[in-house]
Design a protein around this nucleic acid. Sequence first.
DNA 1: CGGCATCCAAATAGATACTG
DNA 2: CAGTATCTATTTGGATGCCG
Lengths: 138, 138
Amino acid sequence: MKKENRKSAKEFTEECTALLSSVADALYAIGGKWKLMIIIAMARGNKRFTELQKQVTGISARVLSSELKELELNGFIVKKVSVGYPVTIEYELLPYSHTLEEVVGALSRWGIQHRDKIRRDMTSAGPSEKPNKLPKVK
Amino acid sequence: MKKENRKSAKEFTEECTALLSSVADALYAIGGKWKLMIIIAMARGNKRFTELQKQVTGISARVLSSELKELELNGFIVKKVSVGYPVTIEYELLPYSHTLEEVVGALSRWGIQHRDKIRRDMTSAGPSEKPNKLPKVK
DNA sequence: CGGCATCCAAATAGATACTG
DNA sequence: CAGTATCTATTTGGATGCCG
């Protein structure tokens, strides 16, 4: 992605190959529709299963359940079960989740500017013109 | 995600709500297994369909084809068809793709450190101990 | 409330064959 | 080479019911 032409073509190619594999690794761990969303919702203070399901719009209990398990296995969160009555179950972010701050920040900034771009594109194209040319923007 | 306690709880909650929606928007546009990978491969200089399919390991022609179409619709790339003989088809990154550099950089850095963490976890746990406790790491 | 099990529908993706 | 079409296999997800 970087484009400093001081570098040889070979160096540049190698750099991109490394990018390809490290980004693939990242996507493998935190890719998918939900993982980041759940972590953000938890950062917001939501700890209970039902709270999370309300926050993360569109997720079903079944999927939330399995995503939480994966997040736990991968060391992002812990599940805490109280011994009192009634038993309450809370999920908490582990420190490792905070290593994602940079990624979340970058995605958020890009998401904001992308949303703006889409809006500009739609209005500049005028209403009812090529309505089929701007997909994937909810 | 940020944790500056100068902010009121209300401000913090609002901040996280905004995060949730902007990250959702970003994931909606560039989420999924392939889009970022294809863009990175193209940054590496790959422009032809078959080249891309070789670079982006695991993608099928059918999926690559449809992903390229979406990337084109969303303004990340252009498809250029030469008029010569034989007809050659090349895909090129548009400037808008470069707005993703920050995201790609963050993901790449995180991917690298995550890979290291996984390796440490595996070796410190010792071989053949809880081999079922570290999933999702290819 | 916080799940898991089951069943079923829908979306996604691979394989293969075929075309300009 | 650069795809498309078709069929099928796999994955994914929703709905429901049950249980501690």
